[in-house]
Write a protein that binds this DNA or RNA. Structure first.
Lengths: 200, 200
DNA sequence: AATAGAGGGTGACAGATGTCACCTTGCAAG
DNA sequence: CTTGCAAGGTGACATCTGTCACCCTCTATT
C-alpha cells in the first residue's frame, strides 16, 4: 500500500486528484494540504511514502517543501505536479531531491503509474521536459532578480530604489545588466523572459 | 440522468473531474474536450444537458463557446469553472448566457451540487463573487485594449505603431489615456490592472 | 603590500515615455 | 447645413529609461 499526501492550493483539483487516486487499490490518500507550510507539517506527522505537490502555493512552494524534507532526511519521496515546464523550476526541483516531475497537461491515467514509480525510488521526468534541464542556467544574481521582480510590477527606478535603500542610478545599472544578460530590449521584455524560464 | 461534457485544457484536471463526477449516480460524462473549438463541436454532436468549461483554453475561450451556443439557441446549459475571479470575466460570462460560474478554489464536494442546479436551470454564482459583478466596468475602448496588450509584451511605441499602421504619437496618446483611465502611473501598471480585472 | 572582484554609486547623453494642447478629417444627427 | 464628436495626428516639453565609462570601498586572495 502506497500512502500519499496531496498538496495543491486549488481545492477542486486537490479533491479531484484525491478521489481519482483513491480509486487505485494500492494507493491511500492519508491527508491533503492546501499550502506549503501545511504540507510540511502533515508529512512530518504522517510520514507518507510520497508527497504529491504543486509548486506555486501560498506560504511555501512545493520546491521549498522538498528542500526542507531533504534537509531533515525525511524518507518521504516528493513528486511535483505543475502547470509550468520552466527550466528553472526543474533544475531547482532536482537540486531539492525531487524524484518526480510531471505536468498538469499529462493524461490523468498515467499519474498513478508515475506515482508508483516514484514510490519505488525511480526518477520520473515528463517526456520532452528532460531537454529543458539542459537549457541555459539562470544568469541573474540575487540583486538583479529582486529588482527585476519589482520592475515587473511597473514600479519606477526611484520607487524601487527607496524600497531597497539604493540609489536610483544603481537600480538603473542592475536593470541594464539584467536586460542585457537576458537579451531583452527593455525591462518589460526582460521580466517576461525571466519569468518564462522560471528565474523569477 | 444529467449528461455533461467537460472542456478543460489541463488533461490532469480534466481527467480527474471526469472521474470525480462519474462517481455520482445521476451524472454521466459523455465527452471531454481539450480546447474551445472541440468543445463546441462535441456539444453540437452530443447535445448534453450541461457543458462544464474552463475559460482560458486554446482556439476559443469558454466564454466564446458559451456565446456561440447562445447564438445557435442550443439547449445546452453552460457552467464555467475557472481560476480567476475577474469582474470582466464574470460580466462577459453573464452576457454570454452562462448559468454557473464557480472557481477552482471551490471545494470539490460542492461541484456536483452546483452542476445539478445549473442542469435544473438555476443560476449559480460563487459566493463572494456576486459583488465582483458590481465592480467598475471596463473603461477601455478597443484601440486602447489592443495597444495595451502589445505594450504589455514590452514593445516600444514605434513597434506598436508599425504593427497597427498608426503613428508613434498616436500610440503614445492611447496609452496615456489608458493609463489615466486605469489610475496607473505607467503602461506596465496599467497592463497589470487591466489584466487583473479581466479587461485584457 | 598589491590586486582583483563584488557591491554600490555618479554623471553624461540619447532615446523612450508621459503630459498636454491643439489640428485635421470624416461622418452622423439635429 | 452645420454642429459635434470620434479617430488619428503633431509638436513641445518634462521626466524616465537605457547605455556607458568611471569612481569608491570593502573583502578575499596571492
Amino acid at each position: 500500500m502506497i500512502r500519499i499526501i496531496i498538496a495543491e492550493d486549488q481545492s477542486l483539483l486537490r479533491g479531484a486528484l484525491a478521489s481519482l487516486l483513491s480509486l487505485e487499490d494500492d494507493i491511500e490518500v492519508v491527508a491533503q494540504a492546501s499550502d506549503g507550510a501545511q504540507a510540511l507539517a502533515l508529512v512530518e506527522q504522517h510520514a507518507p511514502d510520497v508527497l504529491l505537490t504543486d509548486i506555486e502555493m501560498p506560504h511555501a512552494s512545493g520546491i521549498d517543501v522538498a528542500r526542507k524534507l531533504k534537509e531533515s532526511k525525511s524518507p518521504t519521496k516528493v513528486m511535483i505536479v505543475t502547470t509550468f515546464a520552466r527550466p528553472g523550476y526543474l533544475e531547482r526541483a532536482r537540486a531539492a531531491g525531487v524524484l518526480g516531475y510531471v505536468l498538469k497537461d499529462a493524461p490523468s491515467e498515467s499519474l498513478a503509474d508515475s506515482l508508483r514509480k516514484v514510490a519505488n525510488g525511480q526518477l520520473v521526468i515528463e517526456q520532452g521536459l528532460a531537454e529543458a534541464a539542459w537549457a541555459s542556467p539562470d544568469p541573474l544574481n540575487d540583486r538583479e532578480r529582486e529588482i527585476l521582480r519589482l520592475a515587473e510590477q511597473g514600479q519606477s527606478n526611484k520607487k524601487i530604489a527607496q524600497q531597497l535603500y539604493l540609489s536610483a542610478g544603481t537600480v538603473r545599472n542592475y536593470l541594464a545588466e539584467a536586460t542585457q544578460k537576458l537579451g531583452a530590449s527593455n525591462r518589460i521584455e526582460a521580466a517576461r523572459i525571466a519569468r518564462d524560464n522560471g528565474w523569477l
